[in-house]
């Protein structure tokens, strides 16, 4: 069984983890086109190479981020999500009127 290094708990059997999908940038739901939204919700790049994914260590309820090579299945590094997500995300009604930078 594969072993994954949890940033909080160290090396553990992969069976202790739950996959949470790729880390993807959400287009601004108030301003993006239907097509952009459909792309975000339904399409996956399926790229051969290093991808960034959400993983949950189920026994401790801890979400973190892993970089994994999809061809070799090698996990290159894992880290706390605060390294990417370090600011409070806001949604506001004004989004609909004035497009702004995509959130998340």
């Amino acid at each position: 069984m594969k072993i994954m290094h949890c940033p909080l708990n160290g090396p553990r059997n992969i069976s202790e983890f739950v996959h949470g999908g790729e880390v993807r940038e959400m287009p601004n739901p108030a301003t993006c086109s239907d097509r952009e939204w459909a792309d975000y919700v339904f399409y996956s790049d399926n790229q051969a190479g290093v991808i960034t994914e959400w993983w949950l260590h189920a026994p401790s309820g801890y979400w973190f981020i892993a970089e994994r090579h999809t061809v070799t299945d090698e996990i290159l590094k894992t880290y706390d999500p605060s390294e990417i997500f370090n600011q409070r995300v806001e949604f506001s009604k004004e989004d609909a009127a004035a497009p702004k930078e995509a959130t998340a």
Binding site: L56, G61, F85, N86
Partner: peptide, 12 residues
């Protein structure tokens, strides 16, 4: 619960 935790890991 997991989804809530995951969202707030992003929204903070």
């Amino acid at each position: 619960y997991r989804e809530m935790m995951k969202w707030n890991a992003q929204w903070r």
